[in-house]
Simulated scan of single mutants.
Amino acid sequence: MNLGEDSPRFWVGKVYRLTLAAILGAVLIGWLAGAAAAADESWSREFRAIRKNQDIGYHRVSVERQGDETRVATQIELTVKLLGMVTVYTYHHRSEEVWRGGRLVSIHSRTDDNGAKLRLDAEAEGDSLRVKGTDYTGLAPGNIMPTSYWNSAFPRHDLLLNTQSGKLLKVGVSEKPVEAEDGVAPGSKRYALDGDLRLEIWYDAQGRWAKTRFQAESDGSIVDYRLVGE
Rank of each mutant, 00 (worst) to 15 (best):
A180M: 11
R103K: 10
S152C: 04
P141L: 02
K132W: 06
Y136I: 02
L104Y: 07
E125L: 10
R130F: 08
L139Y: 11
L120K: 04
L168C: 06
P177L: 15
E125G: 07
T134I: 11
L118A: 06
E123T: 12
I144D: 11
S109R: 05
W150Y: 09
Y136R: 10
M145A: 11
F154M: 15
E123V: 14
G115L: 04
G133Q: 00
L118Q: 04
D112H: 01
D121S: 15
G166P: 02
R156C: 00
R110F: 01
L120G: 08
E123A: 14
G183Q: 02
E179W: 14
D127F: 12
N162Y: 03
N162H: 00
G133Y: 03
Y136P: 01
V105P: 06
D121T: 11
G142A: 03
K117G: 11
G142Y: 00
H108Y: 12
V171N: 04
V178C: 07
G115V: 03
E125C: 04
N143L: 03
P177K: 15
F154W: 11
P141R: 02
I107F: 06
S174G: 10
Y149M: 12
L159G: 01
E123N: 14
S109F: 02
T147Q: 05
V171L: 08
L104Q: 05
L161P: 06
G138S: 03
T147N: 07
G138A: 04
V131N: 01
D112L: 09
L139E: 09
K176F: 09
M145D: 05
A116Q: 08
L160H: 03
L120P: 06
V131P: 06
R110A: 01
A180F: 10
D135L: 09
D135V: 07
L129Q: 12
G102C: 11
G142P: 13
V178W: 15
G183L: 01
V105R: 03
D135P: 03
T137N: 05
G183V: 07
D121E: 15
E175F: 06
I107V: 15
P146Y: 01
L159N: 04
V105Y: 04
T147W: 00
P155C: 07
A124K: 13
G102A: 09
D112N: 02
D121L: 08
P155S: 14
R119V: 09
V173E: 07
D121K: 04
T111A: 06
D135H: 02
R103G: 13
R156I: 05
D121Y: 04
S109L: 05
K132F: 12
P177Q: 05
K167Y: 03
L139S: 14
P141D: 00
R156N: 10
Q164L: 11
P141I: 12
N162E: 06
T111R: 08
D127R: 15
Q164R: 11
A140R: 01
K167E: 02
E125K: 13
